[in-house]
Structure formats: structure tokens, C-alpha cells
């Protein structure tokens, strides 16, 4: 196997890397680029812990090849805060105790960000279905849904 050279944009920065042609993007992020915020909970697209946004679309980075990223734009959890200012979702997750162990948190935040970009004023049901691809085993989702509702409200300036 010979490596594939990729030039991409991650959280606004140009990044170049070489990866194996069969290497999932998640492994590239974690093992080659040191971006370990995306987690591997399953490796099969069933848990959402590795969620990232590629060209504006929410995806599981375990189900994308690193080789596909040439010329793409990626957003990961590491780029969510604006300098030392947390994104409203990040702050609301802390304030609402919407995380316990925290392993699913980066994936939830990315998925919630994608959800609110499409639908700034989601109902509880829309939030629940919008986040159904992210598994959390600690919280029972209650406080996560409330944190997203609060962040949505804050972001709408309501």
C-alpha cells in the first residue's frame, strides 16, 4: 500500500498529511494530527462519538476515508470555541451538567451545532431525533436536550 497525499482545511487551517488509502479519517485525525477530540466508540457509525463536519455536512469520521478529504473543509471539536470564548453549546453543556463521563460530549456538540445551523429553533422532538445518532450512556439525554434548547435560545438572541 502506498500512502495518499491530502491537502485539506481543518478548523480554518490548511493541513497536509499522508495517510494509507484504507485509513479512516478518524484515525488520521487522532493518530496523525493529534486531534483526539473525536472519539472512537464503535468504528461503525452507530455511536456518533467521532462526529465532524465535512463541507457543511455532519458525518461520522469513522465512516470516511482520510484519502477522500483532499480539498475539503473540516470542522472538529477542537475548532468549536472562538479563542478563549466557548461556543454557546459548550457553555450550556457545562452549565446544565449535560455531561457526566464526557466521552460522547464532543460528538454531541458537533451534531448539535450542525442541527442548529439547519434549524435554529428546534422542538424537543426535533432535537431528540436530530441527536439520535449520538449515543450517551450516562445522562439519559435529559440534560443534553435541555442544554441544546438553552443554547438554541441564546443563539437566536431570544
Amino acid at each position: 500500500m502506498s500512502a495518499v497525499l491530502v491537502k485539506t482545511t481543518i478548523n480554518g487551517d490548511t493541513v497536509e498529511y499522508a495517510c494509507q488509502p484504507d485509513e479512516p479519517l478518524l484515525d488520521v485525525l487522532r493518530n496523525r494530527l493529534g486531534l483526539t477530540g473525536a472519539k472512537e466508540g464503535c468504528g461503525t457509525g452507530d455511536c456518533g462519538a467521532c462526529s465532524v463536519i465535512v463541507d457543511g455536512r455532519l458525518v461520522c469520521s469513522c465512516l470516511v476515508l482520510g484519502a477522500e478529504m483532499d480539498g475539503k473543509t473540516l470542522e472538529t471539536i477542537e475548532g468549536m470555541a472562538d479563542g478563549d470564548k466557548l461556543h454557546p453549546l459548550q457553555q450550556q453543556f457545562i452549565d446544565h451538567a449535560a455531561l457526566q463521563c464526557g466521552i460522547c460530549t464532543p460528538g454531541f456538540l458537533i451534531a448539535a451545532k450542525a442541527l442548529l445551523a439547519k434549524n435554529p429553533d428546534p422542538s424537543e422532538e426535533e432535537i431528540r431525533f436530530g441527536l439520535a445518532g449520538n449515543l450517551c450512556r450516562c445522562t439519559g439525554y435529559d440534560k443534553i436536550v435541555r442544554a441544546v434548547q438553552a443554547a438554541a435560545k441564546e443563539m437566536r438572541g431570544a
Binding site: G45, D46, G48, V54, R57, L58, V59, A111, A132
Partner: peptide
Amino acid sequence: IGSKQVQGR
């Protein structure tokens, strides 16, 4: 099919 994440692909 799948999740919102899977839908993106």
C-alpha cells in the same frame, strides 16, 4: 437510514 451523520454520506 442510519443517523444524521450517516445521512450526510
